[in-house]
Design a protein around this nucleic acid. Structure first.
Lengths: 344, 344
DNA sequence: GTGAAAGCGCTAACAC
DNA sequence: GTGTTAGCGCTTTCAC
């Protein structure tokens, strides 16, 4: 019971293999009755085209790569991030009869470039999605560009050259969150910045400043602490910020891990959240819902971003899901229990 | 600057393509000097064999699949689980010049089988790793078996037929954890069972019983609550167990999400952990370290299990990392702050 | 609308 | 040790 080939189908349908090929690939110029006969034969024989043969002949691999920072290099803080990207990319792939190759990479590794190059050349990837923060790393981006492989960046800090990119509105949504806090009566809203490698995270800080301005609040260096995206750094920053006089009544952290660190410190210091201190995060990781009180946060539309990125690669410009603004997918603010009116 | 082919390399090295093929595939019977010349030509031309051509000619895809339960179907409780599996499988793949195709699937979906079949036939997967709990689902396992694709199950509840499998010592390590609690003086050790779909989780319950017996403690149905692996079910079970009289002084949950639920309830009820109640979990998810007090838990060697599974597929029996017992990789107990001596 | 023939870049089997 | 010759199963080109 060896697998059926295109010849078997052709013979059974009484046509040439070219016609089978046309039907299978949904090409035009096939008479309806012929198409039906071929489709019947395909079904009867449970025929599925061999991907290797197709790739070899067509010089396209129907394979795209998803490149992201190896979570093992950190202590896997944001596995959810990666899984959502995978999910979005997989969705687009399955709709386009393509497959996804995942490629976590450690940019501290000497061989990153070499490994990437091997991946690309051996598999003849039709395209690559590079997720932040790797989308900000010249060595990664250039290695890919040198191979001539189509590339889509996810949340690159800047435009990232001529490459296509998909982003979210980090800056605007952070301004919105800041205004939300200001509207609750908070006058001293602190901010904890994230890892500077992650340029999109820098936009969050700008958004915070925008929000302050929009709310008529003054920006103060005092109220800004430099974190590195980790839980521990959130704790450290909180310890400093919460000793300030006057003490901030709201802390907005550039990610949820740090926000959770702030919450831990507040609990330890006996500061009531949200009674005495409002805390907001970013990313809406599962932990945000598991801590108590649950964290107000911002959810990036990662699944849709990755899906869109994959579709850019897979379908080019005839992506039906595309609209003018689809390369910037807006984020959602999730109000939960950790934010509330400012104390008197 | 089109890519170099095997002919270009052969020409440059002054040999036939077959010799190039031998060198590239590390086959024997090549004179050292010839090998060196070919290697030089390969390097000069930056030649990398085309995977599609190789697959087509050799009828092997150098591609393995990793099939796991789509985390989106749940609310992504244990993304870390999947990432560790991916990491292990990827490690083995990169060492064998192979690639990994990930295939999350929702077993509630009507088309699971069809989708799996498409994946396998189109890509001619050389092998498939099926992770628990999917490794317990006949529809999944049989679909794969029907295609004749080599299959390795990860933590299948039972032997899973003739298929190779890689497991951890769920039962033994749970017995050990239970003994550890008994040794701390706990007389009333409760247990929260997990999702029955996940057969390996059932072994954890058996281990709990074993441990009780080994410690001379009596088993009581009263002290067993049925959870479903979710945080919420951990809370519900805790609420029942902690109202018991006498109240258990230790609760061992079949996973960390449930253990975290127990901790939350204990905090709400004003029960000191570990002073009045010891809590132990299983899985050592990141959350286990983030809650306060940090949870005593058990860490499955998922990365190594997946790596071993991939190596079984990729290298068959000449896996240098294999030893007699490598198909059962032992788990580690991580003692943290949530367990301590029983109260008087 | 449909088909015939020529590869795609490699491996396999066998010859030398 | 090394080379020759057929394919692998499909797409492409171009003829009809």
């Amino acid at each position: 019971m060896s697998r059926a080939t295109i010849f078997d189908v052709a013979e059974r349908a009484g046509v040439s293999i070219k016609t089978v090929s046309r039907v299978v690939n949904r090409e035009p110029n096939v008479r309806e009755s012929t198409r039906e006969r071929v489709e019947k034969a395909v079904a009867d024989l449970d025929y599925r085209p061999d991907v290797s043969a197709r790739n070899l002949a067509s010089h396209r691999s129907h394979l795209i790569g998803l490149v992201y920072d190896d979570p093992k290099a950190y202590d896997m803080p944001s596995g959810g991030y990666i899984l959502e990207l995978q999910q979005g990319a997989l969705k687009a792939c399955s709709e386009s009869l393509s497959q996804l190759l995942i490629h976590p990479c450690d940019f501290r590794d000497e061989d990153v470039a070499e490994r990437l190059k091997s991946l690309i050349q051996q598999t003849r990837l039709s395209g690559i999605i590079v997720a932040a923060p790797l989308s900000n790393m010249p060595i990664i981006v250039q290695t890919i560009e040198n191979t001539g492989t189509p590339l889509v960046s996810l949340s690159p800090g800047d435009g990232n050259g001529d490459n296509a990119s998909v982003t979210t509105n980090d800056r605007e949504v952070c301004a919105e969150m800041t205004r939300y806090l200001a509207d609750l009566g908070h006058k001293h809203v602190a901010f904890i910045t994230g890892n500077p490698d992650h340029k999109a995270v820098a936009f969050r800080f700008l958004g915070y400043k925008d929000g302050l301005t929009a709310s008529g609040l003054e920006f103060s260096e005092q109220l800004v602490a430099a974190g590195d995206n980790s839980f521990g750094s959130g704790q450290a920053c909180a310890e400093r910020l919460l000793r300030l006089d006057p003490r901030p009544t709201a802390i907005f952290a550039a990610n949820d891990d740090m926000a959770a660190g702030v919450l831990r410190v507040a609990n330890r210091m006996g500061i009531d959240v949200p009674g005495e201190l409002s805390i907001a995060g970013f990313d809406d990781i599962p932990l945000a819902r598991q801590v108590e009180p649950a964290l107000t946060s911002i959810r990036q539309p990662l699944v849709r971003m990755a899906e869109r990125a994959a579709n850019i690669l897979l379908r080019g410009n005839d992506d039906p899901t595309a609209d003018a603004a689809s390369d910037c997918v807006p984020a959602d603010i999730k109000i939960r229990e950790s934010t509330g009116p400012a104390p008197d």
